[in-house]
């Protein structure tokens, strides 16, 4: 599984420092990417099994795709100098974007994070089984 490119547009109100806003968007997207595909705290009877950066795998440069950030400026009359936020919004959107891209590519929905190849494989098999089950009785579809 490989994410090729992520484009993120974010309404941050007034961009007080555009370079920093872009950095915040890209960083948020990165954290969303990690949460979507590979980061997981693994618990066993209340014990954290992966309390290190080796086993809690935040993405490295190699699997982090090109991230393109687009600042959408608006003026928020309530915010300081018209600003809203630029820290977390793009993180939240990244996860469903990746989940939807996977659905678009292979037709299965995974509803727990991280979305691992193992979960996708299991879901594809389940789907295959259901299709075979639907086809089987009284039709000549049969199982493939």
């Amino acid at each position: 599984m490989h994410v090729h490119r992520i484009i993120a547009a974010h309404d941050c109100g007034k961009a007080l420092n555009p370079m920093t806003v872009e950095g915040q968007i890209e960083g948020s997207v990165y954290m969303g990417l990690g949460q979507a595909l590979q980061e997981e705290m693994v618990w066993n009877k209340g014990r954290l099994m992966n309390p290190t950066l080796l086993e809690y795998r935040i993405p490295s440069t190699l699997e982090t795709p090109e991230i393109e950030s687009i600042i959408v400026e608006s003026i928020d009359p309530e915010g300081p100098f018209g600003a809203k936020e630029a820290g977390e919004g793009s993180l939240a959107a990244t996860i469903p974007a990746i989940a939807n891209a996977i659905y678009d590519a292979v037709g299965v929905r995974i509803n727990t994070l991280p979305i691992t190849p193992e979960k996708i494989l299991a879901a594809l098999r389940e789907k295959e089984k259901q299709r075979a089950g639907n086809d089987a009785p009284g039709t000549n579809g049969g199982s493939r």
Binding site: E22, E26, G27, I58, S60, T61, T64
Partner: peptide
Amino acid sequence: IRLALSSNLCRCTGYMQ
């Protein structure tokens, strides 16, 4: 560049900047 920096983890930038 990506390869040379692949022993270094960054939590903030998403590496683009």
